[in-house]
Design a protein around this nucleic acid. Structure first.
Length: 576
RNA sequence: CGGGAUGUAGCGCAGCCCGGUAGCGCGCUUCGUUCGGGACGAAGAAGUCGCCGGUUCAAAUCCGGCCAUCCCGACCA
């Protein structure tokens, strides 16, 4: 492609709307334009990257026997009623009504549609297992879209669904998909890790998220040298230090004027935060409950919601606390008889001599022992794992890094097939619900994740495997006929060898072209200028390292081919 | 949804407090000079000042309402 004819509207300045590198660079490099909050157009450079990622995805999935299909975006309400998710999915489901007042959803995921297809057309055990996928635009009405395509309301996703006669078959496909995912991200040139994910209410036996390592990632991943890795939300907690052998002291109410927060109470009473118990009142759907956790730890709302099996979980307001707990916000505590359920974190079970709110303004209790002084309705793991916590597998301290979730694999079991009465006929003629798996990859998010992982102050650095072009050919003297004729020839020579070239033939100054080239981030630049031309040489620059190689005219094709091969070798050595 | 901020030319911004002809830089068009890291000069095109209403002789500017966008939080298969 000649740059003079290409639609690559680069910008010199940082757009006001962008915060993180991938967002800023996608706009500046002319890949992306915003239509509304969380809604973007992908311009030619982005579309080429998307195509490359999709090609890798298709190759790897087809190689393990998946088949590509395309399902509708528009889903009738009745379909979502069948699975029960019209009610459960919540406001994130985009809904609309047609001229006949019939209701629809814009598909955020396709378990319902695919299960219906299977229900009618995959009737025999002889057809199982089968694994179908599509690459398509998904819609999710995120509360707060942000970071460009990283969290948008409309995005491109690859979603696959597998159907099995039993769990063993599902497990096998799950492992195949897991391996295919590892290969896909490796082939995209990305450093990724698979981490244990939340199986929660669905209760499947296994789920993993694939995280691309990046400082700006929204997820914190805890990992251990033994190989265990999980997001901080999903990581299991091992028991914290406990003072169960301390002497138990008599309960005592103390005056704590205006001290509400853990920090304030801790400082005022001169006790460590870990000796306090936080009592957090939640509104879970229409019920009010209190969760107790240790003062120095953060609550994990995912664990709370899973435990309570609720759809909406939010903090109770001060007024609601007053009305439903007969207590005072800031001084809520577990001691005595309660009007709402009390659930406590497991780590508090044997803790002695703790400090809690006294359900009375400006008062706390000291020396609380929950087993003695309160009635706890259930003990459960509620806290968020942190860096430094003990690994649940081997007990060593875990460290942390940040990551971007680009994919997830999931064993669904028979959740949807049972709900939608989707069964196959087994050998003995009985009708049995399918075992199902589902597997997603955020295509557009993967593109952004690559930029987060590989960029510098000048711009993007694409891995060769997903780069919009293989080579950028820069003619520094477009007004010079000999040089231009030479460049035209190099352009054609490379294209004849199926090397995808962006040819900067524009009548611009050298610096201008260099800046654009660095910004766009094509991995190899061929620079043709007067000085080197006279010596029958060109300059080859490696975008990633800045390394410059001089190269004789008749060696160009050879050198470029070698460089491209080398770049692919670098990537492929990480493909297992 | 709670808190904060912003909407003025394609992009980045000033002007608003103190009402009176709508500005700057980049980009765009034309011409000339320049030509290896975002050149220079000259000429030019381009804006219902987010929308609606109010106050006023007069509103980008003051007042009210609405909408949109961004940030923090809550939330997030």
């Amino acid at each position: 492609m000649r740059f003079s004819r290409a639609f690559i509207p680069t910008l010199k300045e940082k757009p006001a709307e962008a915060e993180i590198p991938s967002h800023t660079l996608m706009i500046r490099s002319g890949m992306l334009r915003k239509l509304g909050s969380g809604i973007y157009s992908y311009l030619p450079l982005a579309k080429k990257v998307i195509n490359h990622i999709e090609t890798i995805v298709r190759e790897e999935l087809d190689a393990i026997g998946c088949q590509e299909i395309l399902m509708p975006v528009l889903h009738p309400r009745e379909l979502w009623e069948m699975s029960g998710r019209w009610a459960v999915y919540g406001p994130e489901l985009m809904r609309l009504t047609d001229r006949h007042d019939r209701e629809f959803a814009l598909g955020p995921t396709h378990e319902e549609v695919i299960t219906l297809i299977a229900k009618y057309d995959i009737k025999s055990y002889k057809k199982l297992p089968i694994n179908l996928y599509q690459i398509q635009t998904k819609f999710r009405d995120e509360i707060r879209p942000r970071f460009g395509v990283m969290r948008s309301r409309e995005f491109i996703m690859k979603d696959a669904y597998s159907f099995h006669k039993d769990k063993k078959s599902l497990q096998k496909t799950y492992e195949d998909m897991y391996n295919a995912y590892s290969r896909i991200f490796a082939r995209c040139g990305l450093k990724s890790v698979a981490v244990e994910a939340d199986v929660g209410a669905i209760g499947g036996s296994s789920s993993h998220e694939f995280m691309v390592l990046a400082e700006t990632g929204e997820s914190e991943v805890l990992h251990c040298e033994c190989g265990y890795a999980a997001t901080s939300e999903n990581a299991k907690i091992t028991a914290l230090d406990c003072n169960e052998h301390d002497e138990m002291i008599k309960l005592e109410k103390v005056y704590t004027p205006e001290r509400k927060s853990v920090e304030e109470v801790s400082a005022f009473l001169g006790v460590l935060p870990k000796k306090l118990i936080k009592t957090i009142v939640y509104k879970a759907d229409d019920n009010f409950v209190a969760i107790l956790i240790r003062g120095d730890r953060e609550i994990n709302p995912v664990k709370v919601a899973n435990f309570l099996q609720c759809v909406n979980l939010e903090f109770a307001t001060e007024d609601e606390i007053a009305e439903f707990t007969h207590s005072t916000a800031g001084f809520v505590g577990p001691v005595g008889k309660k009007s709402i359920k009390l659930y406590a974190d497991l780590n508090l079970k044997f803790m002695r001599n703790m400090v809690t709110g006294a359900d009375e303004k400006d008062h706390h209790y000291k020396n609380v022992h929950l087993e003695r002084d309160a009635h706890i309705d259930a003990w459960q793991d509620f806290i968020q794992a942190e860096k430094g916590d003990k690994c649940p597998k081997c007990g060593k301290a875990m460290s942390s890094f940040r990551g971007i979730e680009v994919g997830q694999v999931f064993q669904l079991g028979d959740k949807y097939s049972t709900a939608m009465e989707a069964t196959y006929d087994a050998e003995d003629g009985s009708a049995i619900p399918y075992q199902m798996g589902c597997y997603g990859i955020g295509i557009t998010r993967t593109m952004a994740a690559s930029i987060e992982q590989f960029h510098d102050k000048d711009g993007i650095i694409w891995p060769i495997s997903i780069s919009p072009y293989d080579v950028e050919l820069i003619n520094l003297s477009p007004s010079d006929e000999d040089i231009t004729e030479f460049c035209d020839n190099v352009y054609e020579l490379l294209q004849d060898e199926f090397i995808d070239v962006l040819y900067d033939d524009r009548d611009e100054k050298a610096g201008f072209k260099f800046k654009d080239a660095d910004l766009i981030g094509i991995p190899i630049h061929i620079i043709v200028g007067k000085k080197s031309f006279e010596q029958e040489m060109v300059e080859i620059k490696i975008r990633k390292t800045g390394e410059k190689i001089t190269c004789a005219f008749d060696d160009i094709l050879n050198r470029i081919t070698m460089l491209i091969d080398k770049m692919y070798d670098e990537i492929n050595k990480n493909v297992t």
